[in-house]
Amino acid sequence: MEVVDPQQLGMFTEGELMSVGMDTFIHRIDSTEVIYQPRRKRAKLIGKYLMGDLLGEGSYGKVKEVLDSETLCRRAVKILKKKKLRRIPNGEANVKKEIQLLRRLRHKNVIQLVDVLYNEEKQKMYMVMEYCVCGMQEMLDSVPEKRFPVCQAHGYFCQLIDGLEYLHSQGIVHKDIKPGNLLLTTGGTLKISDLGVAEALHPFAADDTCRTSQGSPAFQPPEIANGLDTFSGFKVDIWSAGVTLYNITTGLYPFEGDNIYKLFENIGKGSYAIPGDCGPPLSDLLKGMLEYEPAKRFSIRQIRQHSWFRKKHPPAEAPVPIPPSPDTKDRWRSMTVVPYLEDLHGADEDEDLFDIEDDIIYTQDFTVPGQVPEEEASHNGQRRGLPKAVCMNGTEAAQLSTKSRAEGRAPNPARKACSASSKIRRLSACKQQ
């Protein structure tokens, strides 16, 4: 084909351009004929944790799935940006308080904090938690009735009371019990989460009196709706648990309003109706937990002794299953770290194939690490110290990083047969305790 000078094309009309061969290198194709290559998922490591896909996002930050490269346990990490926390009232204080509380709590029905990582340079905090497959609110939203069968609701409620009793025994008032803060594992274990607005009572406090509340409006008791200066913290949790039980068994809320002012007005009056299909035992329990006067409201001991709580409820309806993943529609909620794991395991070791967030990740503290002497050669063979940054567990980050890069360049065919977990650990520049 004859090559045409581009400067001469402006002298031709459209018809003349076609005659000189423009149609031979300008093609129009339908979008259905285009085959897009999927974007390669680059592996990203935060300390010893391999990052997966997004699980959810809230006002405080994002939650992603991660894999512990040492234990191969599935975890969830809450990623918090200090810049964003400053824009939220009491944001930083709530996060630090939640970390302090979770560090000393150990119960099967309370979410466990596994690790805390802090990135000084990017001003990011990573709260590594045990993995929960789904939230209770997500399960309720997945069915038209917006409720659980009585047998399933009873099982979840009993676990909620177990976890709540443990928190109260530790002198902690949750203040925000609701389905949105109750998570579930694949085995059906309920976990109380989000202790950001919780309050730890003084060890020598005479009672459970509280003065502040930041919980969700629909789950607040009349004493808070009416603006009382002080109130019983434990009875606030009992009320919120009662509203939660009402919601998961009926699909409704005892109090509603077009806006928060109308909602608080209705809560302050204390008038509500219980659907007739709840039955006398459940209705009596709800009335005891939603008692207007805090002094007359049920205690956890009274809830445990109630006939509806103690009764064994046979399954009359099919239980609400864990819904498919909202993004991938995966009904099994498979591990989202698998594509990243395959990338590390299947590809040659190259620095361009993975990302390490930083050479140094500070753990379990908000301060910069200490310094240790770096050896410097002298005339008599002895070495003197220069400062060298280290990880919180004493690992020399720069030395590990250099060693990792040197190993990656060394030709050794046997290394390709290593397991995925050992490869992740070798790529991680800074081991965590």
Rank of each mutant, 00 (worst) to 15 (best):
P369Y: 11
G21A: 11
A398M: 15
W332A: 14
L263T: 08
D176N: 00
P281C: 03
D229K: 03
L113G: 01
K262S: 06
V197C: 13
Q37D: 11
D358R: 10
I360R: 03
G56H: 01
Y60R: 13
E317A: 13
S31D: 09
Y246F: 03
P275Y: 05
V320S: 12
G251P: 00
E357I: 14
F157V: 00
N412M: 02
T336M: 03
C134V: 03
R426I: 08
I248R: 00
M129R: 07
G227C: 05
L45K: 13
K97A: 12
G385T: 14
V114S: 02
E265V: 11
K287H: 10
I238N: 08
L183Y: 14
K122A: 08
M18Y: 11
Q382P: 10
P323I: 13
Q399P: 10
V337C: 07
N393G: 10
V95P: 15
E357P: 14
E396Y: 09
E33W: 04
R297F: 00
R426N: 14
S378R: 08
V116I: 02
K403T: 08
A218N: 10
D208C: 09
N380E: 12
D115V: 09
S69E: 09
T209Q: 13
V143Q: 04
S271F: 06
F234I: 15
G215V: 04
S419I: 08
N259R: 07
Y49F: 07
D194E: 00
F354H: 10
D343A: 12
E376W: 04
L400Q: 09
N247M: 03
Y156P: 02
D176E: 01
R147W: 04
D365W: 10
R104Y: 03
R106P: 07
T244S: 03
R40P: 08
I192N: 09
K416P: 15
F148C: 02
T402F: 08
F354N: 14
S422F: 11
P89V: 03
A225T: 15
T212H: 14
Y362H: 12
D343H: 03
E223W: 01
P319G: 13
C134S: 12
V143G: 10
L245E: 00
D352N: 07
Q112N: 13
A414R: 14
A389E: 13
E92L: 06
F298V: 04
W239R: 01
A318P: 14
L85I: 14
A316L: 05
D194I: 00
D141G: 08
N266R: 10
S142L: 08
H313D: 08
Y261H: 04
G270L: 05
Q382D: 12
E256A: 03
L353T: 12
G233F: 12
G187R: 04
D68V: 02
L101Y: 08
K78V: 00
G346H: 15
Q305D: 10
E145F: 05
Y246T: 05
E357L: 13
E70D: 06
S307D: 12
D176V: 01
F231C: 10
F234W: 12
P369G: 14
R147F: 03
N259Y: 07
P324S: 12
N412V: 10
K62S: 11
I88S: 08
E265L: 08
R86I: 09
K423N: 13
E376F: 10
R409Y: 13
M129W: 03
H174C: 05
S401D: 08
F354Q: 15
R40G: 08
E120Q: 08
D207E: 12
G233T: 15
E70S: 05
A218T: 04
I46D: 01
D343R: 07
A273K: 03
T363L: 08
Q7R: 11
R211H: 10
I111D: 14
D327N: 10
Y131G: 04
L183D: 01
A218W: 03
K108G: 05
A414S: 14
P38A: 06
I238R: 00
H379Y: 11
D115G: 02
I356F: 08
N119D: 03
L252W: 11
G385P: 09
A316F: 08
C132H: 08
V368P: 12
G91S: 04
N266D: 07
S69W: 01
G288H: 15
A153V: 02
E65L: 02
E265W: 14
E376Y: 14
S428F: 15
L55A: 01
S213M: 07
Q112W: 03
D284C: 02
Q37A: 10
H154F: 02
L9C: 13
T367V: 14
G58C: 02
D277W: 04
E14Y: 10
C391M: 15
R211Y: 13
V20L: 04
D258C: 08
G385E: 11
S299N: 14
G163V: 01
L105S: 10
R103A: 11
K146D: 02
R147C: 09
E342I: 11
D365G: 14
L182R: 01
N119I: 13
R383K: 14
Q220T: 15
S69R: 07
E120F: 13
L167P: 01
S401L: 13
Q305E: 06
Q399V: 06
T395R: 14
Y60L: 03
S232H: 10
L341V: 10
L353N: 14
I274H: 02
E57P: 15
V372P: 12
V197R: 06
R104V: 04
M22C: 08
E70L: 06
P324V: 14
T402S: 10
G279W: 06
T249E: 00
H27Y: 09
P319N: 12
I424Q: 13
G270H: 06
G385A: 12
L341M: 15
L55P: 09
D330C: 10
V372W: 07
E265D: 10
S59G: 15
P387N: 15
V128N: 09
G394I: 13
D162H: 03
T13A: 12
R405F: 14
G58L: 00
K312Y: 08
K388M: 11
N119P: 11
G187V: 04
S401C: 06
K82E: 10
I35V: 05
L245D: 00
I424D: 13
T249D: 00
Y49P: 01
K329Q: 07
K62T: 15
N109G: 02
L282F: 08
Q137H: 05
P275W: 06
Q137D: 02
